[in-house]
């Protein structure tokens, strides 16, 4: 018989040895003592770096982000300008020659909403003004780093103009290469049942 495969790992912060808590769907855990974030990978707790986006808000929602390159029959998409053209955007990119970024919501959200939110963030090409460590806790991370490539591909497919979505040859040749994903927390404001990000004009 092969390895039973189970390993039960107590949640103890690797930096300050504080106990951490976990929700049912959570895949990354934030230490309430030192603020570090840990994800279970290969049977071990490994640290994940979290960037924090500056801005005001009363809740921090986690997102995975990564730069990407799209390969397709139409060529390689490796900068923001070409990507904007591919998804039919008429905006002017702030940094047209930089690698484009894809955003994947890392908190609990039904898949259609998650794709829509990721799409909206990705096509708005936000410039990331990072701030030092935030005092607010980040909402639980429920999407593992290993699942980012699959979600990122869906989000990038949803940004395509209709002409490309109807072209089977383009779809079959479509593939995405991602850089190593990083977590970023983005501040949102509560307004009734909604969460708003006024600077990026986002709503959850």
């Amino acid at each position: 018989m092969a390895d039973a495969g189970f390993r039960i790992v107590p949640l103890v912060c690797g930096r300050c040895a504080a106990r951490m808590t976990a929700g049912k769907e959570q895949v990354a855990y934030q230490c309430s003592g030192c603020g570090s974030v840990w994800e279970l990978a290969g049977g071990l707790l490994v640290p994940r770096e979290v960037d924090h986006l500056s801005g005001s808000g009363d809740i921090l929602l986690p997102f995975w982000y990564a730069s990407f390159i799209i390969n397709s029959q139409e060529g390689v998409v490796d900068n923001t300008m070409i990507f904007m053209k591919m998804c039919g955007s008429v905006k002017t990119a702030a940094a047209p020659n930089e690698a484009p970024l894809v955003f994947v919501p890392a908190f609990l959200l039904p898949p259609p909403q998650s794709i829509r939110l990721g799409r909206n963030m990705t096509v708005r090409f936000p410039s990331l003004h990072l701030s030092p460590v935030r005092d607010l806790p980040v909402e639980p991370v429920t999407v593992a780093e290993a699942d980012v490539p699959a979600m990122a591909e869906l989000i990038l497919l949803s940004t395509l103009v209709e002409e490309k979505r109807n072209n089977p040859l383009f779809l079959v040749s479509f593939s995405v290469e991602l850089s190593s994903p990083r977590l970023v927390s983005i501040p949102f404001m509560r307004e009734g049942n909604r969460l708003l990000q006024p600077e990026m004009n986002l709503e959850v």
Binding site: A2, A4, G5, F6, I8, T21, A22, L40
Partner: peptide
């Protein structure tokens, strides 16, 4: 813990533990 859950709190000692299945297939 429920099948598919990644973590649960022990109701005896209160310590949270997470379950790793990465090293193989859960049997």
């Amino acid at each position: 813990c429920a099948e598919g859950d990644r973590g649960a709190v022990c109701r005896f000692c209160g310590v949270t533990s997470v379950i790793s299945g990465d090293s193989g297939v859960h049997r």
